[in-house]
Nucleic acid binder design. Structure first.
Length: 284
DNA sequence: ACCCTATGACTAG
DNA sequence: TAGTCCTAGGGTT
């Protein structure tokens, strides 16, 4: 489920779990040969830019992770006295905190849980130098979740491109971190036709979408899920059985009635990705 | 036990 | 633009 919010959330969690001490890094499946380079090394912190996650280690090394379409992290809490759980499935990388266990306070606690994360199914997991981290970041557009991001870089590209805005929003060189869900939802909330060329976008429209992405994706980081429905529209069909409330306006709602205007939500392939939109609300 | 799909991105042509 | 790679869940046999 990885759009940018997922990676920023992971960066936040992994920093909390691992920063400030050495960690054990292993490769239970044998496919992450480089783990020996960072195993036992001091974990400084984790960062995310767009859909890329970086584990920064002392000595100018980083592990660069991209989850691709399927990758995810399993997080385990391990009581100090317990062994970490056996890896399940095709685990490419396991990172575990090294705890210098201290129960001198005699408070009867069994101990603080330590954390182990298992990485499965990533499209990328490699050790690189910090200079290469910069290279990766330089290839990306501004990230709405980066407080220092410069949206003008994105606007400069959009305004001179004839590609549809629906495709431009998904292009990581234009904007970093926006995936298929945020693309569809932010266009709906802005009332913009996904097929409109970048050259026909007005600056104020882009501004509004950027600001909306900043807000929506921050919610995603905090909650771990993409919720885009305004309070006044928070009723109607559920995204799947067992879900407690609706989440989105158009994503995977093709054939259903628009929550705002009642028109039938449409689906179409745009540049090899499935695009969802409302022909009623996004007429221009 | 299959078959399909999926919030991604790369490569070849 | 098509093909490729990785995993998992849901649906269908």
């Amino acid at each position: 489920m990885p759009e940018g919010h997922t990676l920023h959330r992971l960066a936040r969690l992994h920093t909390r779990y691992f920063a400030g001490g050495p960690v054990r890094v292993s490769s239970p499946q044998g496919r992450f040969v480089d783990h020996v380079v960072v195993d036992g090394r001091y974990f400084d912190h984790a960062t995310a830019t767009g859909k890329h996650l970086f584990h920064h280690y002392e000595g100018g090394l980083a592990v660069h992770i991209h989850l691709g379409l399927y990758g995810f992290f399993d997080t385990h809490l391990v009581e100090d006295s317990a062994e970490p759980p056996a890896p399940v499935g095709q685990v490419r990388m396991r990172v575990g905190a090294v705890v210098d266990y201290d129960d001198d306070d005699d408070d009867g606690d069994v101990g603080f849980p330590r954390h182990v994360v298992d990485l499965r199914g990533p499209t990328r997991c490699e050790v690189i130098a910090e200079a290469e981290v910069d290279d990766v970041r330089d290839r990306l557009g501004p990230d709405p979740l980066d407080p220092d991001a410069d949206p003008e870089r994105a606007w400069a590209r959009i305004r001179r491109s004839s590609r549809p805005i629906g495709a431009l929003l998904m292009d990581q060189k234009v904007l970093a971190g926006v995936g298929n869900v945020y693309r569809a939802e932010v266009l709906f909330r802005a009332g913009i036709d996904p097929f409109r060329p970048g050259t026909a976008m007005r600056e104020a429209e882009f501004r509004a979408m950027w600001d909306d992405l900043v807000a929506l994706m921050a919610v995603g980081v905090d909650t771990g899920a993409i919720h885009t429905i305004r309070d006044e529209n928070n009723h109607g069909d559920l995204p799947r059985r067992g879900a407690d409330r609706p989440r989105n306006y158009v994503y995977q709602r093709d054939g259903w009635a628009c929550r705002v205007c009642g028109a039938e939500i449409a689906l179409q392939t745009m540049e090899a990705r499935t695009l969802f939109w409302c022909p009623g609300c996004q007429a221009s």
